[in-house]
Design a protein around this nucleic acid. Structure first.
Length: 932
RNA sequence: GCCCGGGUGGUGGAACUGGUAGACACGCAGGACUUAAAAUCCUGUUCGCCGAAAAAGCGAGUGCGGGUUCGAUUCCCGCCCCGGGCACCA
């Protein structure tokens, strides 16, 4: 098909990547090459990138790494015959846009829109195969209509612990009407118990309050960091030493009404579900640590002096019951008031006041031991001895019962507390306790432990629980560290809650009233009394017989279900049709960073489970397989200035002077060599700079660190694409190393990949000879090279070993060049093999080879194994495990044939020194080892 | 402190199930082509010893010290270092 080559000018015989890439990007767009239909007749593959927040800073070369990997994988699967869903969109609600609006007066909707445009234009240059007709934006009312709808689904549901699934709240109401809540204890407040008759006697307000304790999305009172001077609520990391980070104003705990998701009800299923998904072990580990399941017992202790009053502690080590030297309750514990005595009252109150002045994060970070004696005692259930009850912040109100039994000989924190306050320590583990440290062992034999004496601790756990259960003072209890997720923010730029408060009753909007649009608002200052900015819009807040909820949803609301919307993005009747979700199902490959390990991934897993329970989708884990890409670090360049001067010294000589180190923009440096002229112009300070060079060259120092503007080490993908082309950029990002590892960016290294691209091009075109493809048959050696690389790219892409796939392509191109192979039949297949990695050049050559459609509609070549079969192999021959020579041998030789050949070999004879070998190990197709 | 990753040439990395350590690149050195440069191509490049050099040969070598094995980057035990996550969770 020389016709196709004929119109090419000499200039285009060169690898003109800029023209090629522009041309194909336009064609892809104009012909909607990447739009995907929900074609249920074809096998599906769903490949998804983690939802990006469109930040104003733009992309650096580290950001697209995961996108390139998922793009390569998507294209590869399409070549293998799959209908591939590969969408992209924006998690466009969020705090940065709101903060930007407050500081610059640009409305969040506008700045977000601009950021998305920048983001998109950067992505487009890299040549991704996203189906942009499916783009979603969480801040778009047509999207958040369904976020609100799902919120209402959660609001109208409760979790049936017997069935371990969500059910409609209406079913709970009918249960209450027939049998009260005897079978379904209240997750929000275990003290709530009622019969059917009592339920019916409740007024609407009481019924509403009870139901709120069951709902999966519920409203409750939570503590926030309240800063009176700023009139706003602060996040934990905005509070330092009890004052606000901005301005240093005092911050106090304030109880505010908040929304929560009852994710704790799903703890068990979130844990179990990990067994069914293909995530890395470390990712599963992080999630299960976060969920934090533990087995133990709740034990009642009688308080002395208050007849009949007792309190519960939670412990995982009931076997240590005789080692209890004191009790500790959280400062927020409800018994604090009743435990304090006239002598202790002042100290207790001072302590509580001090604790309240600090954020939870600070309390957790606190290393000092603090606490106060409550003034009261409880009695030991077996010995009847009095045990002092202390109050300390190291016990958290939200975990277990908010009270512990302290066993200083076995628990590090209890030990330090006892030492600090001079509380005597009982030893129940003999020599395992040395008096200088607690020992948390379970292997000791118990002493001083009455009926447990002589038992191994791990066995005594069961014995002690059984005994205490029998006595009616304890029961087994499984606990989870995880807490319910706070689901409201006192902010503007988020989804409004579809809730109207009528008195104290939260009334949901009806579906027909959705979306409840976020009103335009000029002034984004906080509302009165810690409320969000929406409280400043009374005309929006006030509705007939009620007030709208003024909180908005947090960032993770929209991102918890977006993968479902991509399946059916324009559906105005449903969040996603069941037909679409049944077809596309789970995300087959989810690509993103580890920073979302416990937040986003757990929330979206919970939403998926709830939607599954309620019958809206047919699967309960959203992501079948997770690939975490590593980060690309920056390679900074440093110059050394002699202190107090404008004289700079080359890095090899810097130790001879007293110097200060400065970061220099990496674009001014070639490798390590500084362009001193440009450096002088870079900043006014350096106009008069002088340089002490080494042999006329000024070299910089280097350091690997985070890619960041302040280190001047940011490399913009736009520049790389402009200089080398998108295909080279994609290939190079993949070539850098294993996708899941962190690695430094080295712009210098991209040259090698670009050389490879040109070498590949020259299999087809030569600047002088023009089009080189011929109809001559390829040699067997060439076919072997082709099928070897086809097989390698296939296997390596499937297991995400993109770097080795690229090196395989390099080897193939090197071999085919050496073989002077220009066979059309062979090169057509090679173009398909490379297409997923370098899509633009593949399209160009596919077209030049005479094809009219996209190369993506070709099929990946079937491997013809017979070209790969070897008849002989060069075996390494080792003497005692050390390779001494090699022998080219037929692959099908027997052990005895091998032995006789090996024994005649001169090198082997030399090493044997006349002795006969003990044995000869022959592993077919691997190696030969002569053991002396 | 606990948990999870990871330590291989000057650099990024390869070696997939225990079988020729260093593929493929970068960089560097030398050479060809060129008036010159760019581009391209060729040769060499783990370290040490031996040698004028090349070839050949020998020794060491995958963070350190042991072990299992005919054979260990790979498996086991004990350390060291780097990166990440969690951190009073009873």
């Amino acid at each position: 098909m020389r016709i196709f080559a004929a119109h090419l000018t000499a200039r285009t015989m060169e690898y003109a990547f800029r023209e090629i890439e522009r041309k194909w990007q336009e064609r892809w767009r104009d012909n909607a090459v990447y739009s995907v239909r929900n074609d249920v007749s074809r096998p599906k593959c769903y490949v998804l990138d983690m939802f990006p927040y469109p930040s104003g800073a733009g992309l650096h070369v580290g950001h697209p790494l995961g996108y390139i990997a998922s793009d390569v994988y998507s294209r590869y699967k399409r070549l293998k015959g799959f209908n591939v869903l590969h969408p992209m969109g924006y998690d466009s609600f969020g705090l940065p846009a709101e903060q930007y609006a407050i500081e610059h007066g640009i409305p969040p909707a506008i700045s977000t829109h601009n950021n998305i445009d920048t983001f998109r234009s950067q992505l487009d240059k890299i040549g991704f195969c996203y189906d942009w007709t499916r783009e979603v934006r969480t801040s778009d009312p047509s999207y958040y209509k369904w976020t609100q709808w799902i919120f209402l689904q959660l609001f109208e549901s409760w979790f049936d612990r017997h069935r371990q699934q969500a059910r409609p709240i209406a079913e709970l109401i009918s249960i209450f009407e027939t049998e009260g809540n005897q079978q379904h204890g209240c997750p929000g407040d275990t003290a709530i118990r009622f019969t059917a008759e009592e339920w019916k006697s409740f007024d609407p307000q009481q019924q509403s309050d009870v139901l709120m304790h069951y709902r999966l999305a519920y409203s409750g009172v939570g503590e926030v960091n309240w800063c009176e001077a700023l009139g706003t609520v602060l996040a934990n990391d905005e509070v330092i030493n009890g004052v606000s980070e901005r301005g240093g104003h005092p911050v106090v705990k304030k109880k505010l009404r908040q929304w929560y998701l009852r994710i704790t009800e799903y703890a068990e299923r979130l844990l179990k579900g990990l067994e069914t998904v293909d995530f890395s072990d470390s990712m599963k580990e992080m999630q299960s640590n976060w969920i934090g399941k533990s087995y133990g017992a709740e034990i009642d202790f009688e308080i002395m002096g208050i007849t009949g009053r007792s309190f519960k502690v939670y412990t995982t080590r009931p076997d240590t019951i005789f080692g209890v030297d004191f009790m500790v309750i959280a400062p927020e514990h409800e018994l604090v008031e009743s435990l304090k005595t006239s002598e202790s009252a002042q100290a207790v109150e001072d302590y509580i006041a001090n604790v309240n002045s600090r954020s939870e994060r600070e309390r957790m970070a606190e290393k000092k031991i603090t606490g106060v004696f409550s003034g009261s005692y409880c009695s030991h259930p077996f010995t009847g001895q009095p045990i002092p009850i202390w109050i300390s912040e190291y016990v958290l109100a939200g975990y277990g019962t908010g009270a512990i039994m302290a066993v200083p000989c076995g628990d590090e924190r209890d030990f330090r507390f006892a030492k600090h306050f001079g509380i005597p320590i009982t030893n129940i583990i003999g020599a395992f306790y040395d008096g200088t440290d607690a020992n948390p062992t379970k292997e000791a034999r118990l002493e001083n432990s009455d009926f447990l004496n002589g038992l191994l601790m791990k066995d005594a756990i069961e014995v002690s629980i059984a005994r205490m259960e029998q006595m009616g003072i304890a029961h087994r209890q499984t606990n989870y560290k995880m807490r319910d997720a706070a689901f409201s923010r006192q902010r503007y730029w988020g989804e409004p809650f579809p809730i109207v408060w009528k008195g104290e009753v939260a009334v949901p909007l009806s579906v027909s009233e959705l979306p409840l649009e976020l009103p335009q608002l000029e002034n984004l200052k906080p509302g009165p009394e810690g409320q969000g900015p929406l409280a400043n819009l009374p005309e929006w807040v006030t509705v007939a017989d009620g007030n709208r909820e003024v909180n908005t949803m947090p960032g993770y609301a929209g991102s918890s279900w977006y993968f479902l919307r991509y399946m059916d993005p324009h559906n105005e009747q449903e969040f996603c049709s069941r037909t679409a979700s049944d077809y596309w199902g789970q995300v087959d490959l989810y690509v993103g960073g580890t920073e979302h390990a416990v937040g986003h991934l757990l929330y979206s897993r919970m939403w998926t489970k709830a939607l599954f329970d309620l019958g809206h989708i047919g699967f309960d884990e959203p992501f079948k397989r997770l690939l975490n890409q590593g980060k690309i670090g920056g390679d900074s360049r440093l110059v050394y200035r002699i202190r107090g001067t404008q004289q700079f010294v080359s890095s090899g000589l810097k130790d001879q002077y007293e110097t200060d180190e400065l970061h220099v923009d990496v674009s001014l440096v070639d490798g390590f060599v500084l362009d001193t002229q440009r450096f002088k112009q870079w900043k006014p300070d350096f106009n008069d700079a002088t340089f002490i060079t080494e042999n006329g060259v000024f070299t910089c120092g280097g350091r690997l660190e985070k890619m960041s503007k302040r280190y001047f080490n940011v490399v913009n993908p736009d520049e790389i694409v402009e200089k080398y082309g998108a295909d080279t950029f994609r290939m190079y990002e993949m070539f850098l190393g294993p996708i899941d590892q962190d690695k430094p960016w080295d712009t210098k290294g991209i040259e090698g990949v670009h050389r490879f691209m040109r070498k590949f091009w020259r299999l087809f075109y030569d600047t002088e000879k023009g089009w080189r493809v011929t109809d001559a048959p390829a040699t067997d050696a060439s076919w072997k090279s082709l099928y070897k690389v086809a097989k390698k790219v296939e296997e390596d892409t499937a297991r995400f070993s993109f770097n080795t796939a690229v090196s395989g392509l390099m080897i193939a191109v090197n071999e085919l060049t050496d073989q002077d192979c220009h066979s059309r039949e062979l090169l057509e297949k090679l173009v398909v093999v490379i297409a997923a990695y370098a899509p633009h050049v593949a399209e160009e050559l596919w077209s030049a080879l005479g094809h009219s459609g996209s190369v993506l509609d070709a099929s990946y070549p079937a491997i013809e194994e017979h070209y790969l079969v070897e008849s002989s192999k060069e075996y390494p021959v080792a003497i005692n495990g050390k390779t001494r020579t090699t022998l080219l041998l037929d692959i099908n030789l027997s052990q005895s044939e091998i032995e006789s050949i090996v024994m005649q070999d001169a090198v082997v004879i030399k090493w044997l020194e006349g002795k006969s070998p003990k044995k000869i190990i022959y592993v077919k197709n691997k190696m030969i080892n002569v053991v002396m």
